[in-house]
């Protein structure tokens, strides 16, 4: 039995997920909670946000995010790649910075437009 705090709403239900019984959820107040409990127990995912070095732009850090949530277990691997990455201005919002980051099938994209320094 696994215990989780539901993050769907401010209520913060204490969920109990029975891994041996097809991830059955108890302690939830609504269906969304049951869904969250199942996903979070079976294959938790997170969006990673960070910054990469940006050369030749008005600012030196470019904020980035994974376009979708990636498996939680790949966060550190993805962040290690982010740390080694440098891009050149100009940068567009949504521009792919690292494709298929850490084999997650999800792209890392820029979240800010950065103009090139003249």
């Amino acid at each position: 039995m696994k215990e989780l705090i539901c993050i769907c709403c401010p209520q913060g239900c204490h969920l109990f997920v029975d891994e041996e019984n097809d991830f059955a959820v108890t302690g939830n107040s609504c269906e969304r909670g049951a869904e969250y409990g199942r996903t979070e127990s079976m294959a938790p995912v997170r969006v990673l946000t960070s910054t990469v070095t940006c050369e030749g732009g008005a600012i030196s850090r470019c904020p980035v995010k994974t376009k979708d949530a990636i498996p939680k277990g790949k966060i550190w691997e993805a962040e290690a790649l982010v740390k080694q990455t440098s891009i050149k201005a100009p940068v567009q919002i949504g521009q792919v910075v690292i494709a298929d980051i850490a084999g997650s099938g999800v792209d890392l994209i820029a979240t800010k437009e950065i103009g090139a320094l003249k």
Binding site: P44, T53, R61, G73, W76, E77, E79, K83
Partner: peptide, 17 residues
């Protein structure tokens, strides 16, 4: 600085989930 962060080690050699 962030410039040298590429050399950083992931704390405790990465975390297992």
């Amino acid at each position: 600085g962030m410039a040298d962060r590429a050399q950083q080690e992931t704390p405790e050699g990465g975390r297992e989930y």
